[in-house]
Design a protein around this nucleic acid. Sequence first.
DNA 1: GTTCCCATGTAACCCGTTACATGATTTT
DNA 2: AAAATCATGTAACGGGTTACATGGGAAC
Lengths: 186, 186
Amino acid sequence: MSTSALALLGLLSIRDMSGYELSAFADKSLGYFWPMHRSLVYRELRRLEDAGHVAGTDVPQERLPDKRVYQLTDAGRTRLQEWLTAPGFESPRYRNEFLVKFFFARHITPDRLRVFLDDYRAALEQDLVDLDATVAKIEGDPDAMFGRLAARHGVHTRQAVLAWIAEVEQALDDLLPVVPTRDDRR
Amino acid sequence: MSTSALALLGLLSIRDMSGYELSAFADKSLGYFWPMHRSLVYRELRRLEDAGHVAGTDVPQERLPDKRVYQLTDAGRTRLQEWLTAPGFESPRYRNEFLVKFFFARHITPDRLRVFLDDYRAALEQDLVDLDATVAKIEGDPDAMFGRLAARHGVHTRQAVLAWIAEVEQALDDLLPVVPTRDDRR
DNA sequence: GTTCCCATGTAACCCGTTACATGATTTT
DNA sequence: AAAATCATGTAACGGGTTACATGGGAAC
């Protein structure tokens, strides 16, 4: 049983939702550390229903396509509980194409590398804006404590990478001092 | 063309290698931010050869299975260069099952949660040991500067997560002060 | 009044993972 | 002498991504 499926059980333990709602909800909560495409959500829901971990009910809607709303079954709740209390966890999966390019940076000109670093920093700063907004929105809600702390995880790591960028730029400066161009002096 | 394939071109720009060697080399270099299973390496090498980006030569060996050693072709070197100089990069993919469980921690007892945090910390500390060893081994080698800095990326993020754990434990202490048990007082 | 966005989903592809194979060498 | 490790790979499965479909409402 995949982590994505178990994550869906977790979300359904909060409230009943349709696939679309689950996907949207996941985007704004688990999205930073467990992204799930809508397609995956739908497929896993089908499987979870086949396995009896969730029960779906078709709900007709006016002006909107009919939807299928899912709720946890007792079996599903039990399975969720098993997973959460079982010790251990898979080691984090991390893939960073930026770092792969960076690793081979001797094939890149220094100025291009600095642009890469700037782009990377910009992406991180955007992440931080989003994460801070998430944290702020649930500040003070005691029910959301773990969600807020999970977002704080993202904040910590992004800030660490910003510090890393500074370290890299320092190393580059030491190696290849920036010579002022005519434009810079103007 | 997948990032893994391009990463292999990058590794082959260092020196000619067989699939097995590439896999071992990748494990100790790109492994922290772009893991590649051996199987994947072999399949991508086949494709790269079909596409003319690498050329393979069978090398018979005594007491060891024959191997196929690959070298970059001109086309491959060009493709690598294109990739490295093209602006932009895919956004980092991050999946952390620990955080998913943590997100649903209201279903876990506080003591179990503390065990989870301890396990997470232990894994991070092991990462740091490995990363520090990597950094130390190539310290001072100017050719390995980017590799060293990439490893430093890992160091920064792991340390940030350790700081996060401390923040979480503080939050838990504030919420549910640990009551000393008979054993603790003994 | 086109064009974009919302709300709902299905289908196909492919990268990444896990399992399988094999014979020599080293370790217990 | 059995078991683990090394050095080389192939094959199959499945989770995750991308592409496709649809019809109403909102925006420009």
